[in-house]
Design a binder for these strands. Structure first.
Lengths: 334, 334
DNA sequence: TTGTATGCGTTATCAT
DNA sequence: ATGATAACGCATACAA
């Protein structure tokens, strides 16, 4: 900037004014400055700006696994929104590792982010306390901890779980397998609870063997779990995978056992990821309004960033059942 | 930091020394400082550090579409590597938009990133010149521009295209459809060229109708293109989709036309994304060593960041054919 | 071993 | 309308 000032023969104050379009500068000088900026390839330093203004315009996004289509979509949706609001997102991939999450949070603190949107991998809110103590606005996204006093944006997972079972029951299924990912984030626990409630409500088979909780949320977990369910002495006529990715795994397992979907087995997923419309057959699933969730999260965050220590807001959105080709009435009755 | 110094009753220089573990500080004072740090929840400001040290420890990653499983994996792989090397990644989602890409580059320049790894959406190198002029090390990743003098890390796409056709030819196919994504990044052009060379080399049907170039690289493009190919007066017995995602689209199209894979149609993809092992049937595909590519890119970048204006290095890795269940000898001969 | 002082590239306040 | 100058939070060279 100093160089630009020299080149243009003005003071740095004038350069600053021109660059920030503050006005109050004569046309002559403005042009001289602009020319110097071009010539020297000058780009104002956000670093110095942050320091001087005490504002970083940075927001952290933490997701559990960036390679996972669900989370990359989340990161993407939120980042876009943030970008449009003039903020730069710092996307952090915690890889389901609490220590990594802590490390990232420390880093974000150092980067002086103005807020954080976090889809947390942590089993408790310990990682978040440091943020609270530094008065950084947080919004918990998707995965939710009920014991923590803080902004939250998520879907009614219980309702989603319920509606999935309901759909299958209405088709005539009485024996339904459920596959869940790890349940330490309450998200999945709630989703499971929704299915339990539905099972009870409709009075269908509640054999505990029908609920399998895997250790990851990847394709192969769905595959293994699907195999397990389908090899039961009395296998289910329908499977509700609480995640689209695991549902794909189940598809594979079913194919391996020469079971046809939906003729021999009805299958449901959860999330409505893009590829859910392109599997064969297309996947019936419970959709979460991710765009809306992302927009809400950013809105809430930006709102809180204005004021100091606002009361936490909680936004609960509703899921939507998307019926496609992977579910049908059962052929055999159990 | 000033507050910590006061709390501990020492100078800021001492605090700085303790925080940075420089040594040369007495145990007594060190403990006093550490206690003060804890008590005040002090986190050193990277912003101020960057300014003082003239090093940001930031590296920009630009990908064309973060929601796309291929690119989220790329971002993920590179980010992890960078993180392990002590660098913070700024992941930017250009959404295949050249203007957005420019905006992000400008932002990265302002953030004073020390280097950039870019999977570019741009049709030319215009966006990169600004970086060159600011002496920011760049490495072009995956998508490559041949007319630009700069570090590049990518796979031999021509070879990959060739080997795909070769595999199908060896199975006995003579009429092979090829589906390509937009071709302004040279990547796809090269991949196509590889298939053309193979077609010529093996002397099989080179009907231009058999090559369809879509306008996106998403599922529905594969679906549409697949439909188009399969409805040809003389449809191909095999389809080589130059992207796994589009291959999934073709699967869907085939199912819609009651064609069974691989019995009625052989199908190949390209990329070997995680889900390629979980489609039904599993997808034969051309694998790119993404982990290795990411590691190489980071290595090259970090290397260049040391020196000034090194000669550009070009790393070309090789693809690998992964044969799975979606390809088989043709039943009918054309 | 510890402290003091200067500079990093901006913004912002105050003069002129 | 323009310029000089003091922060901002830290590193660092130098002094004590």
């Amino acid at each position: 900037m100093l160089e630009v000032a020299k080149e243009a023969g003005v003071s740095i104050a004038t350069v600053s004014r021109v660059v920030n379009g503050e006005g109050g500068v004569s046309k002559t000088l403005e042009n001289r400055v602009r020319r110097a900026v071009k010539k020297l390839h000058y780009h104002p330093s956000s670093v110095a700006q942050s320091l001087a203004k005490q504002r970083s315009m940075l927001v952290g996004i933490l997701v559990p696994l960036l390679e996972h289509p669900y989370y990359s979509r989340i990161a993407s949706v939120i980042e876009r929104r943030l970008f449009d609001c003039g903020y730069q997102a710092l996307i952090c991939n915690t890889e389901e590792d609490e220590d990594r999450e802590r490390a990232y949070i420390e880093m974000l603190l150092r980067q002086r982010v103005e807020g954080i949107i976090i889809d947390s991998s942590a089993r408790n809110s310990k990682n978040l306390t440091e943020l609270h103590e530094n008065h950084i606005p947080i919004v918990l996204f998707d995965r939710v901890l009920s014991d923590v006093q803080c902004n939250q944006v998520f879907c009614d997972n219980s309702q989603g779980g319920f509606s999935g079972i309901q759909h299958l029951v209405e088709l005539g299924h009485r024996r339904i397998g459920v596959i869940a990912a790890p349940s330490y984030p309450e998200t999945l626990q709630r989703r499971i609870r929704g299915t339990r409630e539905a099972v009870e409500f409709f009075g269908i088979d509640d054999d505990p063997e029908l609920l399998v909780v895997g250790d990851t949320q990847l394709f192969d977990m769905g595959y293994e779990a699907g195999l397990h369910l389908l090899r039961l002495p009395v296998p289910p006529t329908a499977i509700f995978a609480l995640t689209d990715v695991t549902a794909i795994g189940v598809m594979h397992a079913a194919a391996e056992m020469n079971l046809r979907i939906p003729d021999d087995l009805s299958l449901m997923g959860y999330d409505d990821l893009p590829f859910a419309s392109y599997t064969v057959p297309q996947l019936t699933t419970v959709a979460q309004p991710l765009d809306q969730m992302g927009a809400t999260a950013v809105e809430v965050l930006l709102d809180q960033m204005g004021k100091q220590d606002q009361p936490p807001v909680k936004a609960v959105l509703t899921t939507k059942l998307v019926v496609r080709g992977s579910t049908a009435p059962p052929k055999r009755q159990t």
